[in-house]
Design a binder for these strands. Structure first.
Lengths: 316, 316
DNA sequence: ATATAATATCGCATTGAGTTATGAAGATTG
DNA sequence: CAATCTTCATAACTCAATGCGATATTATAT
C-alpha cells in the first residue's frame, strides 16, 4: 500500500497552519478539495489523522508524525522547484567546454575562473582539442560548446560560430631578451635565435610557419616543441628562444608571466577566437549564460588591449 | 509551478535502475505509464531530464539532481508507510492511561515498564484518578484506557470492563513487626497499633473501614493518611503501623519493599482490578496491544500469587 | 439558544494515471 | 550492412482523483 506523497504534503500544511481551511488557503486549493484528500488518505491508511469532533482540526499522534514526514517531502519538492528554476536561468548545471590548448590556457581559463566564482553552481568540465576533435564532440553530444580560433570558411555547415577576439599573432620573447634593446629589428637579428614551436598538429604551428615565411625566414631552428602554454612560457622565460603566440594570450597573462612583444609585423592568420556550437541542438541555459559571459569578458579584454596599444604608440 | 512529487519519485527509480523499463518494473507499473509521466514532467519543467537519443535512458545533469531529491521523497514516503504499519499493529503511538493510584503504582507500573521495554515506540502517558475522573477522561477522549478496581455493578452503561486481578485486600505491616511473631492473632492484638489510611476519597479507604468493621474494630487510630503508595510503604516499614492493601500490590512489590501479611481474614470488597474502556470509541491499536499485554501479565502474576499461597499453606 | 466559524458532503467537469496494442529508433550481432 | 533485439514513445480508452461551487452539518462562542 503506497501512500500518496501529495497527501502527506497537504497534511503537513494543514497541521502547520492549524486548520483545514487555512491549509487549503495556503495551498491555493478549495477547502472541500483538501477535505476530501484527507478523507481519502484516512480511508487508505485505515486510521484517523485528526481527533474526532474537534473543530479547529487537531491531528492525532499518527497525523502529527505523518505531517513531519510530509514536511520533509515538501522541502525536497521545494528544493526541486528551486533547482529547476536555477537550471533554467543557467545558474546551475554542468557545462562541457572544449577548447584549443593555447587559447584555453592563456585566455579562457581566467575567464572560467571568474565565471565560476560568480555562478558557483555551474560545474565546468574542460577538455582540450583541435577543430576535428571539438567538432566531433559537439556532434555526438560530448561537448556543449567549443572555443577555438577559426576562419569563417572553416565553420561546419550545421554549426554556429560566435567570434570573441581577433586572432592576431605576435612574436614574443622574455622581457629582458637581447632583442628588446634593439630599436629597429630586422630579419638578420632574429635569425640567430632558436624557436619554440607549438605541437606540430596545431593550427598555431602552421601560423608560426606562415608568419616566418611572411617575413622571409624560410627555415628556422626549433629547440623546443609540443607542450602546453605553461611549458612554452617556462622555456620562453628561461632562454633566449622566440615564439609566435596570440597577442591576447600574451596580454592576458602579462601579470603572471610577463613577455615582450617584438615590433615585427607578421602575417595575420585570418582567424578569430570564437565559440562553436551545434545549431539545432538546444543548448542548456548555463551554456547561454556562459557564452554571454565570455562575450562580455572578451569585449572588456579587447578594450584593454586596444587601450594598451594606444598607450604604447603614444610612448613610442 | 509545483512539481508533482510522484514524478520525482518515479524519476528517482528510473535513474537508480538505469532504465525506464526496469524502473517501471520496480514500480509495478507499465512501461508506457512511467514514460508518459516523465514526458509530462519534462514538459512541465520545460527542460530535458534525459539525454536525447540514448537508448538505455541516461539522465541529464538536471535529471540526476532531481532524481536525488526524488529519492529523498521516496525515503520519506517509505518511512510514512512504515510508521502507519507500526501504528496499525500497535507498535507505535501514544497511549493515555489513567489509573487508581495504589494499583497503578504497585502493580501496573512494573507492567508498563516491561511493556515499554518491548514496544519502545509506544509512549505511555500515565495519570491518576478514581472512577469519576477516569470515566470523564474516557468520555471526553482525554484517556484511552483506565485501570481501576471496580464492582460489576459500577461499570457505566456505555463502557466495557475487562477484569485483570481479584481485588483481595489484606492487612499488612513491616516484616519484623511484633505481630508477626504471634501465632494466632486476635482483635485485641491489633487494637494496640495505629493505622495508615489511604486518601479519604479513595475506595481503598472505604475498604479499610469495611475490613476493620468486619473484624469488629469499629473505631481505629490513624497516624498517617493520604499520600501515594511509596509514602505509605515508607511509613509502614519505618513504624509499627498497620494498613490494608491489595494483596497483589504487596506481592508485586515484595522484592523491593517486603511486607508481612497478617493471617487475618477480612471482608473482601467485591471488586476486581480491571480495564475500563469506552465501548463505541474505536481504540488505537496500541491500546489493544497494551490491553492484551496486561491480560497476559496479570495471568502470570495471578499464577505466581496462587503458587506462593500454596507454598505458604503447605508450610503452615 | 443562537450565531458563527469550521468541516463534510454532493454533483459535475477536468485532468492525470493506468492499461493494452502498436510504432519508432538506438543498440547489437552475424 | 542488414536483420534482430531492446528500449522507449504514442494512441485509444477507462477509471480514479482532483478541481470547483453550493450546501449540509457540527463544534465553538456569545
Amino acid at each position: 500500500m503506497k501512500i500518496d506523497s501529495e497527501h502527506l504534503e497537504i497534511l503537513a500544511v494543514i497541521v502547520e497552519k492549524g486548520g483545514l481551511t487555512e491549509g487549503a488557503d495556503e495551498l491555493g486549493k478549495s477547502q472541500p478539495s483538501v477535505s476530501r484528500s484527507m478523507a481519502l488518505l484516512e480511508k487508505r491508511i485505515g486510521m484517523p489523522l485528526f481527533e474526532p469532533g474537534r473543530r479547529p482540526l487537531r491531528p492525532t499522534e499518527l497525523g502529527a508524525s505523518l505531517a513531519r514526514l510530509g514536511n520533509r517531502i515538501r522541502i525536497a519538492n521545494k528544493d526541486a522547484s528551486l533547482l529547476v528554476r536555477r537550471f533554467r536561468q543557467g545558474l546551475a548545471g554542468r557545462l562541457r567546454v572544449g577548447g584549443s590548448p593555447i587559447f584555453t590556457d592563456g585566455v579562457i581559463a581566467t575567464m572560467i575562473a571568474e565565471f565560476q566564482s560568480r555562478n558557483s553552481d555551474v560545474h565546468i568540465d574542460q577538455s582540450y582539442g583541435y577543430l576535428d576533435t571539438l567538432e566531433a564532440g559537439l556532434k555526438n553530444g560530448g561537448l556543449d560548446i567549443a572555443i577555438l580560433p577559426l576562419h569563417p570558411r572553416q565553420v561546419p555547415p550545421d554549426m554556429d560560430f560566435l567570434p570573441l577576439l581577433s586572432g592576431r599573432n605576435v612574436i614574443t620573447c622574455r622581457v629582458d631578451h637581447p632583442l628588446t634593446r634593439i630599436k629597429a629589428i630586422s630579419l638578420s637579428h632574429i635569425a640567430n635565435y632558436p624557436w619554440i614551436a607549438p605541437p606540430a598538429d596545431s593550427p598555431l604551428y602552421r601560423d608560426l610557419e606562415r608568419a616566418l615565411k611572411s617575413i622571409g625566414q624560410e627555415d628556422f631552428m626549433v629547440n623546443f616543441s609540443g607542450g602546453t602554454l605553461a611549458s612554452i612560457q617556462s622555456v620562453l622565460t628561461g632562454s633566449d628562444s622566440l615564439t609566435v603566440l596570440p597577442y591576447s594570450v600574451v596580454f592576458q597573462t602579462r601579470r603572471t608571466i610577463p613577455l615582450a612583444v617584438l615590433p615585427l609585423k607578421i602575417d595575420h592568420p585570418d582567424r578569430q577566437l570564437g565559440i562553436l556550437t551545434k545549431s539545432d541542438r538546444q543548448r542548456p541555459p548555463a551554456a547561454q549564460q556562459f557564452i554571454t559571459f565570455l562575450q562580455a569578458e572578451s569585449e572588456r579584454l579587447q578594450a584593454r588591449m586596444d587601450h594598451a596599444e594606444q598607450v604604447t604608440h603614444r610612448r613610442s
